[in-house]
Amino acid sequence: MGIVIAVISGKGGVGKTTTTANVGVGIALNDKKCVVVDFDIGQRNLDMILGLENRVVFDMVQVMDGEVGLKQALIKSKISPNLSFLAASQTKDKSVLNSEKILKLINDLKADFDYVILDAPAGIETGYEHTIEFADRAIIVVNPEVSSIRDADRAIGILDSKSQKVKDGEEVFKYLIINRINPKMVKSGEMLSSEDILDILNIPLVGKIPEDTAIIDASNQGKPIILNKKSEAGQAYERIAGRLCGNEIDMQDVENPKSGILHKFKGMFK
């Protein structure tokens, strides 16, 4: 049976979808069968970031309603044969979801894949609650700023009270990803440091991602940044995917990047 991981944040625009896409690709490249599911019904974006927008024929809602089979709706990515994608419906809205249908879909996916990654919608409404309902684990994506932290805190609170696992008396294991770290601003004290964020949220850190303008281009092109070996953000996602697959990888200090002569020299040619 596979593991269901929900990617949540509370606040919108912090990098949930980018994280889902990159972590999904990373896990698939680690030779694990992985499916990424876009739960943001009515506002799907994950297909674009994965570069699969022109291959979407059937969506998740059609599968849940029994109109098409799961195998038909799953899209195999060209990046890795291990990676599949299930699109959200762009025409329906969140009210079509219900717990029974979601449980059946998730159980079907768990039977076929090692990792099932769910991209949650922003906010804490029913769409979010349905995403976390059957999750075994959760990745919480935050930006180092107070509003993102508070919204994430609220989202964790709901996760800890409304997920099925908690109702059964177990715990949903949580991982924290701090996205868009700007080392200069952290050093000057304008941005919250990782220690502060960990103090507030009190969940284990799985990785820090530096701010990287290459991500925007990567998203526009539909090529997840993790495939760009030169990008620091891409390398950070690679390490995170490795950690999620159970590999021991040392934490890199992205807040204090190396500042040797060679590094400065490289910086001049950027």
Partner: peptide, 22 residues
């Protein structure tokens, strides 16, 4: 105590953790 959580308590309380914003 996370954002959005509210504890209503009649007895005495010893809390060994943070109360987050909200």
């Amino acid at each position: 105590v996370r954002s959005g959580q509210e504890l209503n308590i009649e007895s005495d309380l010893l809390l060994l953790n943070r109360v987050n914003s909200g």
